[in-house]
């Protein structure tokens, strides 16, 4: 099985630890992923701004980069959703069709392709899961409150399988965080307010570690957590799994500080 790793542009530059954890977690699960270095971006930022036409060369470059892999795995449901759903505007060559089908969100890949629904490991903290809308409503990785009261999904199941981990029960289980790509700039006021409300829900219900499957939502939420100097750590879920699956002897308690107020103000 040839697996290509897609690390979204902003993750590559600003959250390399998420990319590293993705690589290492896959390795622990027996998958040796390859990172083709000519990769750039999925093109979503342009397309969501209305510039789909301008994004087409980016789409082609993405396909060109990944067409030789059986699976393309990314720690970001949003990019995956974009490739699967919106690459319909370029000519549907065999390569395009293959890449669209073969691109998976990391946790979807772990659950559906590797068939892993539980992970061994320990993470004794209260974790609040932020569901990314594109992963949940777009890729159906989790139940939607619009359809059913049952709160369940791939990522929450994986998290629950960790020893010592408690998942936060939120008032609003799947409200959007307000990131929305360029929305977070063009509609700054509403975007910030949405993020603040989301963070507040977690704060109120005891979240120590705020996590999710999509670093873009988390970047936005982390920006708010840090601005408000809240006692909450923001981690991509892959970082949690990667550290929880650490060979014994590695302490996880050093990994999660109780407070992040010491960070830059």
């Amino acid at each position: 099985m040839k697996v290509g790793l897609f690390i979204p542009c902003y993750v590559d530059q600003f959250y390399p630890q998420v990319g590293i954890a993705t690589y290492q977690l896959l390795e622990k699960l027996g998958v040796r992923a390859d990172f083709p270095v000519k990769q750039t971006c999925c093109g979503q930022p342009m397309a969501n701004t209305g510039c789909e036409q301008d994004a087409k060369p980016v789409y082609r470059h993405f396909v060109d980069t990944f067409q030789g892999y059986d699976y393309v795995v990314a720690p970001s449901g949003s990019c995956v959703y974009h490739v699967r759903k919106h690459y319909d505007v370029v000519e549907q060559t065999g390569a395009v069709q293959h890449v669209r089908q073969a691109t998976y969100d990391l946790f979807d890949f772990i659950t559906s392709v590797l068939g892993v629904t539980e992970l061994p490991g320990r993470f004794p903290h209260q974790v609040g899961l932020h569901l990314s809308c594109h992963g949940q409503r777009g890729l159906h990785q989790a139940n939607e409150s619009e359809m059913t009261p049952v709160r369940d999904g791939q990522l929450s199941r994986l998290l629950r399988s960790l020893d010592g981990l408690t998942l936060t029960e939120l008032s609003r289980n799947d409200e959007c965080c307000g990131f929305g790509g360029t929305f977070c700039i063009t509609e700054e006021a509403v975007s910030a307010r949405m993020g603040q409300d989301r963070v507040q829900d977690h704060l109120q219900h005891g979240t120590q570690v705020l996590t999710g499957g999509d670093m873009s939502c988390l970047m936005h939420l982390q920006g708010i957590v840090r601005r408000r100097q809240l006692p909450m750590r923001v981690l991509h879920a892959v970082e949690i799994f990667n550290v929880a699956l650490q060979p014994s002897g590695t302490s996880v308690s050093t990994f999660v500080p109780q407070s992040t107020t010491a960070e830059r103000v």
Binding site: D12, Q13, P16, Y23, F35, E188, A192, G223, E263
Partner: peptide, 21 residues
């Protein structure tokens, strides 16, 4: 406008691709 209500991410020394390579 990002910075009105949010901190920017802290920039790491090394990108993922640097680490990988």
């Amino acid at each position: 406008p990002w910075a009105k209500a949010r901190e920017l991410p802290e920039a790491p020394k090394q990108s993922f691709r640097d680490w990988y390579q």
